[in-house]
């Protein structure tokens, strides 16, 4: 064990480096991931260390990047590709939903495409348009894909290692605003399997359910609530697909109240799926309807207005206040 303080960007870089050392079939490619090290420097140093055949720049074409990755995965490689920004991943959508997601199924298990699509995603960084989308629902709605969103450096490392080892295509959503947040992480610790949520903070009065960039906000809200004498539990989904019904439902049953927090627009979203699943399974444990604090159903706002859109501590606490405490 060797806990160290590092950023999520460094943890992700370390995950790719360690995976490339462990498995010669792991290759990294995309736009600007070579000598530049990616626009967020997540692939920094990989070309220098492993050579141009293992980490390389491609022409600027996302469908091309993912389509080539699918072919390489069909032929014995484990590609890890970067889609520079969330909204720039859309040209690769057909390759993702019609091919990466379906190849195993189409061939009745004869052809696997083990690949990872890394997507720097979501907002909170003052980015201009087309740089801050929360696109997880598009991916989560597609059978055949795993969808993961880490919220801290330790998980970023562990889950990316697991994603690279996975026999299935994994969409790995990296919250941009957390890239450079530092925290203690023991990269030698055992890595949790994909598909397990985790209780980040114990609590007894209500459960906040979040993933990716919303987790630190939920933790902050729980801390603020504690000052006011209310004990909020925080569950971090980590993995959107597969979804950990067991952990989430056990948590909600233990408190009887829940608020789902997510940056993405709320309509037809991962947050609505969480509410539906928990309600179907925990109805008789609930003291109040589950509330949601999500982004509004609007295109992502310009930098000066994003604070209006993003879930905030106050908005979360207001939602918690509405959980029908009078019936306690």
């Amino acid at each position: 064990m060797s806990a160290e303080k590092l950023t999520m960007a460094t943890a992700l870089n370390r995950a790719m480096r360690d995976a490339m050392h462990a498995d010669p079939t792991v290759v990294v490619f995309g736009e600007d991931v070579g000598p530049l090290g990616g626009v967020f420097r997540v692939t920094d140093g990989l070309t220098a260390e492993f050579g141009e055949q293992r980490c390389f720049d491609t022409p600027l074409a996302e469908s091309g990047i993912l389509g080539m990755a699918i072919g390489m995965a069909m032929n014995g490689m484990r590609p890890v590709v970067e889609m520079q920004f969330d909204a720039f991943a859309y040209p690769a959508f057909e390759q993702l939903v019609s091919h990466a997601a379906k190849m195993r199924n189409r061939t009745r298990g004869r052809v696997e495409v083990p690949l990872v699509i890394r997507v720097p995603y979501a907002g909170g960084i003052g980015g201009v348009e087309h740089h801050c989308d929360s696109s997880e629902a598009y991916y989560a709605h597609t059978p055949g894909l795993h969808v993961i969103a880490p919220s801290d450096p330790a998980d970023a490392y562990g889950l990316l290692r697991k994603a690279i080892e996975s026999a299935d295509p994994v969409v790995f959503l990296e919250p941009k605003k957390l890239y450079f947040s530092r925290s203690e992480a023991d990269l030698t610790a055992p890595v949790p399997p994909i598909g397990r949520a985790v209780v980040r903070r114990p609590g007894t009065d209500a459960t906040l359910i979040a993933y990716g960039p919303a987790v630190p906000v939920a933790l902050e809200a729980a801390e603020a609530a504690a000052q006011e004498g209310r004990s909020l539990q925080v569950v971090d989904l980590r993995s959107i697909v597969p979804f950990d019904d067991e952990t989430v439902c056990a948590a909600v049953r233990s408190t009887g109240r829940a608020v789902v927090v997510a940056e993405a627009a709320g309509f037809a979203s991962v947050s609505s799926e969480v509410v539906a699943r928990v309600t179907e399974r925990c109805f008789h444990s609930l003291h109040a309807p589950i509330r949601r604090v999500t982004g509004f159903d609007i295109p992502y706002p310009p930098p000066k207005l994003e604070h209006v859109h993003l879930p905030s501590v106050d908005r979360i606490l207001d939602a918690v206040d509405e959980l029908q405490w009078e019936y306690a």
């Binding site: 080539m68 069909m74 091919h99 190849m103």
Partner: peptide
């Protein structure tokens, strides 16, 4: 797809247009 692509070295028939050309590039590059 009814046949084994690895055994026959024949990719699944593509019904979407041109998407498989990129897979061909990837197989060749690997």
């Amino acid at each position: 797809s009814g046949y084994d692509p690895h055994a026959t070295k024949v990719a699944p028939q593509a019904t979407p247009l041109a998407t498989h050309l990129l897979h061909a590039v990837g197989v060749a590059h690997a």
